[in-house]
Design a protein around this nucleic acid. Structure first.
Length: 414
RNA sequence: GGAGGAGUGGCCGAGUGGUUGAAGGCGCUGCUCUCGAAAAGCAGUAUAGGGGCAACUCUAUCGCGAGUUCGAAUCUCGCCUCCUCCGCCA
């Protein structure tokens, strides 16, 4: 959520920025609740003060009948006022949490097609076999049995393709730990507070993309970003420890509700996939620079694997609530003749951290909300798509990108 | 899953209805002393929110949430977490 003080100071800006993200929030109504709640708060605090004074006046002696009568009166008034405050507070919180993080100033305004291409690397080749046909022919991929066992869009990786996935994971892991990220395994289920605090849809809502466990306050994670954000919830981190860099490896579970009409063939969009995620907690003034660093790392990693790509600065309407800025790294698909999302990295500034109460203690003692960022190192299912499309031979074999060969017992071809 | 025990400030730890945001100790910060350090002494040392230009002030917080009471860290109920033992299990 946003700092209410910031909204009070910049109501027009917040309204405009929310609109640019496609969020319909009534800032005037929010500020109305804010005013009302503060007035009630003062009433309540004044009544409490009177009560405290009365209690202090009795000094451990038995209070007089008069004092008890006055106390009862205060108790009843306080009860009423607290009740009113509670209901206003609830409405206020709902509205406050609905306000998205404003997009950064250098984010293009617009929707899905309005992202700004920042750079292109590598050649736009053409003519390759679709990854699903290719992998199925090799008996590397089985969606039919995935459907039998779990449902549509679930799958088995088999044999060399499963080994290739493992090799990519190992390579990426070596890469990110070499760059100073601390490797972590994470809980694959998180509670509602962490889920919503990270900015993912409430568990029970219809549009939710998350799988929730029945009768438990638990949902399956959609990315390691979620448990990595919750990791430092309610903590105050010393300034000297920032930035904190983590890398979380986990399966990701997504219902992919409402993705009809989008690119869904084969492994590109599935209900479960593995992903190695980079994550950073930073000082507010660091987050812009670290965001660029995350992008640079993604580029370095994918360049080393020889995959052509472009970088897109995602437009405001496509950012989602928590991100102030997001870069997508899109690989060139010779099958589709188009760029398709491979990784992305987001700067969520203080939005997630304020939800989950994650702060920094400055050297001078001041306390501030930290910034959080996340970036994909490798999303395994999509990585396999990209590599199959770019490394297949006319004979139906798959060359192994050189950096991956050490993790496949030195094999150059599968 | 069953039985028992426990949750107090950065840490340890007192405190079973009434100025207890909370004794005492440790740690930390500043000062005094010292050539310097240690030791010792003195002072300070939470977070959130409201009001105020500010000095400052008010409110809340003793795992969380309800309740009893004029008044709750203290009593009651529910929940959570941790520890010990038993069961089960990769």
């Amino acid at each position: 959520m946003l700092d209410i003080q910031f909204i009070r100071d910049n109501p027009e800006l917040v309204a405009e920025k929310s609109k640019q993200k496609g969020y319909d929030v009534d800032i005037q109504q929010l500020l109305g609740f804010d005013k009302e709640r503060r007035e009630l708060l003062q009433q309540v605090e004044d009544l409490r003060r009177q009560r405290n004074e009365l209690t202090a006046a009795t000094k451990g002696q038995k209070p007089s009948d008069e004092q008890i009568a006055r106390g009862r009166e205060l108790r009843d008034q306080l009860g009423d006022a607290e009740h009113q405050l509670e209901s206003i507070e609830k409405e206020f919180q709902v509205l406050l949490r609905a306000v998205p993080n404003p997009a950064a100033d250098d984010v293009p305004v617009g929707g899905e097609d309005d992202g700004a291409e920042i750079k292109k690397v590598g050649e736009q080749t053409s003519g390759a076999t679709d990854h699903l046909d290719f992998a199925t022919k090799r008996d590397w991929l089985d969606f039919e049995r995935g459907a039998k066992v779990a449902g549509t869009k679930f799958y088995y990786l088999k044999g060399d393709l499963a080994l290739l996935e493992n090799a990519i994971t190992q390579y990426a892991l070596q890469f990110v730990t070499g760059k100073g990220f601390t490797f972590m395994t994470v809980p694959h289920l998180v509670n509602g507070r962490v889920m919503t605090g990270t900015g993912f849809a409430p568990r029970t809502s219809d549009q939710s993309d998350e799988y929730a466990v029945e009768n438990e306050d638990l949902s399956l994670i959609a990315t390691a970003e979620i448990p990595l954000t919750g990791y430092h919830a309610d903590e105050i981190i010393d300034e000297a420890r920032l930035p904190l860099l983590y890398a979380g490896l986990s399966p990701c579970y997504r219902k992919e509700a409402g993705t009809y009409g989008k690119h869904t063939r084969g492994l590109f969009r599935v209900h479960q996939f593995n992903k190695l995620e980079m994550y950073a907690y930073t000082l507010p003034e660091q987050s812009g620079e670290i965001h660029e660093r995350l992008l640079a790392l993604e580029e370095e990693l994918w360049q080393s694997l020889g995959i052509p790509y472009r970088v897109v600065n995602i437009a405001s309407g496509d950012l989602g609530a928590p991100a102030a800025k997001k870069y997508d790294l899109e690989y060139w698909s010779p099958v589709d003749g188009a760029y398709r999302e491979l990784t992305s990295c987001s700067n969520c500034t203080d939005y997630q951290a304020r939800n989950l109460n994650i702060r920094v203690r400055r050297a001078d003692g001041r306390i501030e909300t930290v910034h959080t960022l996340n970036g994909t190192a490798v999303s395994l299912a999509r990585s396999l798509v990209a590599i199959i499309e770019h490394y297949q031979t006319p004979e139906g074999h798959l060359r192994v990108p050189e950096p991956l060969q050490p993790f496949l017992a030195g094999r150059a071809e599968l």
